[in-house]
């Protein structure tokens, strides 16, 4: 069980690194959504169900959507 938790935290850190170092902004935003979803699971493990609901609805849902809308208004690829 604890090994599964370590794996989940590893995925969390990998998604954060991916969100920062990738060249494609859309990939970066989706990685940010994965990050928020895993953090909301960690909130639930720390017995904070209120915060977990809020983070799941806002971090993984609305936040990702507004980033995608902003990318639609600008440019998808990061220039040199």
């Amino acid at each position: 069980m604890i090994i599964l938790l370590y794996l989940v935290i590893l995925v969390l850190l990998m998604s954060a690194i991916c969100a920062i170092f990738t060249k494609d902004l859309l990939v970066s935003v989706v990685a940010l959504g994965v990050n928020s979803l895993i953090v909301s699971a960690l909130f639930f493990l720390m017995h904070a169900p209120d915060v977990a609901i809020t983070e799941a609805a806002i971090g993984a849902g609305l936040s990702t959507a507004i980033y995608v809308f902003a990318i639609r208004h600008t440019k998808r690829q990061e220039e040199k």
Binding site: D50, T54, I58
Partner: peptide, 9 residues
């Protein structure tokens, strides 16, 4: 669990 802020979201 919940409340105004998650409900609004």
């Amino acid at each position: 669990p919940g409340g105004g802020f998650p409900g609004g979201a």
